[in-house]
Computed example of a mutant assay.
Amino acid sequence: MKIDKFILSLFLAIMVAFLFPKGAGILHLKDITEIGIGLIFFFYGLKLSFKEVAQGLKNYKLHILTQLSTFLIFPVLLLLLKPFFSHLVGDSFWIGLFFLAALPSSVSSSVVMVSLAKGNVPSAIFNASISGLIGVFVTPIWIGMFVSQSGGMSLTDVFLKLIIQILLPLTLGLLLNSKIGHIAKKNSVKIAFFDKTIIVLIVYSSFSASLLAHMFKDISWLDLIYLFIIVFCLFWVLMGVVYFIANKLKLSVADRITAMFCGSKKSLVHGSAMVNIIFGNSISASLYLLPVMLYHITQIVILAVVANRLGKRTI
């Protein structure tokens, strides 16, 4: 397996934050990343193909299972395990884990992994795309019950920022899809690089703010190890639950693969954008983003191996 340069850049951003935490303020990265978030979702709207999405509409069992695992099964699992996780890693990391559970699925990597594993690609495109749209509304609703307790903004303020930074750019992109959408698809590699750059800047900015506020002074290496173990186990549990339900629903092998991959993945793009919006005024923002980063690394590595093995089967 090749070393993922994006994952390395995330760790590098954290290291730079430890060495130069004041750099984010000097460079006005908060303002830059807010503009960047709007552009990310504008490009997302431009690239969203209605024709590709429409191809998978008939497979309703797969769609329902995928969206329920993304926005219901995972969050409820975290709620049930709150006493155990809070005791093990603390309330701040538990909020980060719940934030992770409420996020939508990753679009590009879900489709790539499903294609590699010989799953149902049209349905993967449909579910990953729809998940991103649903998440704009569902994620803050789930988090809303914890925002006041975590020192974040009110739910009204969160939705107002979501409308300005995400919904309006996304809608504008969708409206312009038929006219200039082909330009976005043609430059998808450059847009992906831009998305990743903004995420890296958000990670650096969030960790810089937390370090300047000494948020990590009470966090031990053991806490971080526990957090990684939890994230690793959650991923496998969710994969197993989704596969079990898909098997009971008697879905085809290709559909089971799609349900597992799309239903278990979480979007670091949405996570980075929404942590800036929902927890933007909180010095604990990096603590909430850390589980999302760990989960992203876990899902990329594990699914790359699983997809490669499944792809070698004879259909």
Rank of each mutant, 00 (worst) to 15 (best):
K2W: 11
D4T: 09
K5Y: 13
F6T: 11
F11D: 11
L12S: 15
I14L: 13
I14F: 13
L19I: 14
F20N: 05
F20A: 05
G23C: 03
I26P: 00
L29M: 08
D31N: 08
I32F: 14
I37T: 00
G38M: 02
I40A: 03
F41Y: 14
F42Q: 08
F43Q: 05
Y44C: 04
Y44F: 14
Y44Q: 12
L48V: 02
L48P: 03
L48K: 11
S49L: 05
V53D: 06
A54Y: 07
G56Q: 04
K61P: 07
I64G: 10
I64T: 15
I64P: 05
L65Q: 09
Q67M: 03
T70L: 15
T70H: 12
L72H: 02
F74G: 04
P75H: 08
V76I: 15
V76A: 13
L79W: 10
L80P: 05
L80V: 08
L80M: 10
F84R: 01
F85L: 15
W94G: 03
I95L: 13
G96Q: 03
L100P: 02
L100C: 06
L103W: 02
P104S: 03
S105M: 08
S105Q: 02
V111R: 05
K118D: 10
G119Q: 06
N120D: 15
S123H: 07
I125Q: 08
F126C: 09
S129Y: 03
S129W: 03
S129P: 02
S129K: 05
S131I: 04
L133A: 13
G135V: 02
V138M: 05
W142D: 03
V147G: 09
G152W: 06
D157A: 04
K161S: 01
L167M: 14
T171W: 12
G173F: 10
G173Y: 13
L174Q: 15
L176T: 10
S178H: 15
A184L: 11
K185I: 02
K186S: 12
N187R: 03
N187A: 07
K190R: 06
K190G: 00
F193D: 12
F194L: 12
F194Y: 07
K196R: 10
K196W: 05
I198W: 00
I199T: 01
L201A: 15
V203P: 10
V203N: 10
F207E: 06
F207A: 13
L211E: 00
L212K: 07
I219S: 00
S220A: 00
S220K: 10
W221L: 14
I225H: 01
Y226V: 04
L227D: 04
I230Y: 06
C233V: 15
L234A: 11
L238F: 08
G240K: 04
Y243F: 14
N247T: 14
N247A: 08
K250F: 12
K250G: 04
S252Y: 05
D255M: 09
R256V: 10
T258A: 11
A259T: 09
F261N: 09
G263V: 08
S267F: 11
L268D: 05
V269C: 04
S272Q: 01
S272Y: 01
V275C: 02
V275L: 00
S282Y: 04
I283L: 07
S286I: 02
Y288T: 06
Y288G: 12
L289E: 09
V292C: 11
Y295T: 10
Y295E: 09
H296E: 04
I297R: 00
V305C: 01
R309A: 15
R309H: 13
G311M: 02
R313H: 07
T314N: 14
T314C: 04
